[in-house]
Design a binder for these strands. Structure first.
Lengths: 338, 338
DNA sequence: ATGAAAGCGCTAACAA
DNA sequence: TTGTTAGCGCTTTCAT
């Protein structure tokens, strides 16, 4: 008995509760709750006494208890493919700014582009009863989709618009991006065009860009001459390696890369090999990273609204907006490499 | 009444509870709890019946309720300065892999290098009663330190070792990094050395590197000739601009940058201006980003164990390790730019 | 404007 | 091995 009591005391060492604040302030618990959430009515005097007690005791409200007692949580769950691909930190950055302002809390986990892992992590997220779950794109397992629909919580699918949304979608069309990239290269007069990309089975958005890129070239009668797909995630090193391999097999006048990381690798390869850009070889990327503007010849690419995607997604959740698809578009940067 | 009931039903539409599972399986609630957490004892038959009911009803455990009822939470809170600086996504990446394996959940918020914001966000985090709070470095407000100490939850300070830890510290010495960078440049014979950095008041770890860098040069009798500090966060563009300004004012044979982003900007400036590296000007960075190895001349820099910092920090929390400081060291990369 | 009391969905003794 | 019973710390009616 006394042992148990000691244990209790130890565990709860610094844990001041709302009940203790109420007692110290000489008011009821519900009054403290009202004052702290600034909701309902109470007198100015009461408010002062409560705040004084809170201060004096160093009370920190327990949001776990609060969430359980009330209807909805203020957690927002992000289930993202990667943290290495700067795209996702950018989305988180935009979202977290908005969420913090509105007293929401961001929670995340990383799937490594694995749909099975996505399902497991989404399930784990749902256990926290979040206000919303945010995922990349539309390609999920049947199980993930079913679970999300059954959960009753809001779902936001990010960075894609080519597919059917479960609830809210915020992003832009990857198909349109691929198409416009191809059209741009054609307009510039390039005809022997190649492609260097990373694992497209996993990064389905990159896959969509590539397939609509190909369709556009096919329609123009100048299909992709050769392509090189590297295993693993996108990286500068892989872009460099991919271009090296591609040029060993084919004579090209332009290369489309799966994103800017890859394209920078290609750019550096040309720099190191003395291949002049764009006269000997043109390079086109995707994402519009800052670093692409800082290299001696600004990278020709498509700039995507990554931070805005996070911001808008968060705003819609905070506002409890109805289901919808928001097209944020993208911007083609002519640059100097194509 | 009927309205209220409808509302209730709507809100709880898909919310199956443990009690319902227990009823469906024909067992007690605690039995379901034991089976689900695989803790305590129960027969194989019981296990099957429970799992069947879970499956049939599509039950998703409520971790909010679970956390409130049990002693400790499995939330780990990250209060980080930035998501733009790749350092922090890298740390999160390392940590989240370990946390996911151990059924912990990562929560984060972003301070923008503002100690006041850090205090507010740390307070908000504490309201979730996390198992641990992870912060960057040792420089916090008095209020933050006091609050953290009083909270009774574990605290991990990351990416620095030069200072007094509140509880656990995982990282490396920024002072040693600055010192070794200076020693390296001296060894190579450089004597007219400059510095280009970003806002050091906010990024105190960069400030520590710079000050020990200066001390080392002072001791050698060849103090820093000139330095250029740019407002705002580090970026490739700022590195480029900073070097341009610095070279307009001083004749130098080497420049130390606050990190690789800045150094890459400097590198590109030289490339564009036809300044040959390292014969006319040497460049030295900090972080050891992948992209630094992919440019035509590999960047001379110090590689920091960012992912490992996250991993080790998470492991210590999962294992409930005692207070300690873990030095993960760093590696000087000679590269080709210095 | 305020307090009493009934949960929120789970875990953890404690009995059986 | 299993069920019963208290809570965990809040929010939220409902009286007062």
């Amino acid at each position: 008995m006394s042992g148990s009591k000691l244990t209790m005391e130890f565990k709860h060492q610094a844990t001041v509760t709302l009940a203790e604040v109420a007692e110290a302030a000489g008011v009821g618990e519900s009054t403290v709750s009202r004052v702290l959430r600034n909701h309902g009515s109470f007198s100015g005097k009461t408010r002062e006494r409560v705040m004084a007690a809170v201060e004096r005791l160093g009370y920190v409200p327990n949001r776990i208890a609060g969430t359980l007692a009330s209807t909805g949580s203020r957690l927002v769950a992000f289930v993202i493919p990667s943290l290495s691909n700067i795209v996702f930190p950018d989305v988180l950055r935009g979202a977290s700014a908005v969420l913090e302002e509105n007293r929401y809390q961001a929670v995340f986990s990383v799937t490594d582009y694995d749909p099975g892992k996505e399902e497991a992590l989404a399930a784990a997220m749902l256990a926290w009863r979040p206000a919303a779950v945010m995922l990349a794109g539309f390609e999920h397992t049947e199980g993930t989709a079913k679970m999300l629909r059954a959960s009753g919580c809001r779902v936001v699918e990010l960075l894609d618009l080519d597919g059917d949304a479960l609830d809210i979608a915020v992003g832009f069309s990857n198909r349109a991006a691929g198409r416009e990239s191809a059209a741009f290269l054609l307009r510039r007069g390039y005809r022997r065009i190649g492609y260097v990309g990373h694992d497209l089975n996993r990064d389905t958005r990159a896959g969509k860009r590539f397939s609509s890129f190909c369709e556009t070239l096919d329609a123009a009668g100048t299909p992709v001459v050769a392509h090189e797909i590297l295993a693993g995630p996108s990286s500068v090193d892989n872009g460099r390696l991919g271009l090296e391999r591609l040029l060993a097999r084919a004579t090209l006048d332009a290369v489309y890369f799966s994103n800017d990381d890859m394209a920078l690798g290609g750019y550096f390869h040309c720099l190191a090999q003395g291949i002049s850009i764009p006269s000997q070889l043109a390079i086109f990327g995707y994402n519009g990273l800052d670093i692409g503007r800082a290299i001696p010849q600004p990278l020709s690419t498509i700039r995507t609204p990554r931070v805005a995607t996070g911001e808008i997604a968060a705003q819609l959740i905070v506002a409890n907006a109805p289901p919808q698809a928001v097209d944020l578009g993208f911007e083609l940067i002519e640059g100097a490499t194509a």
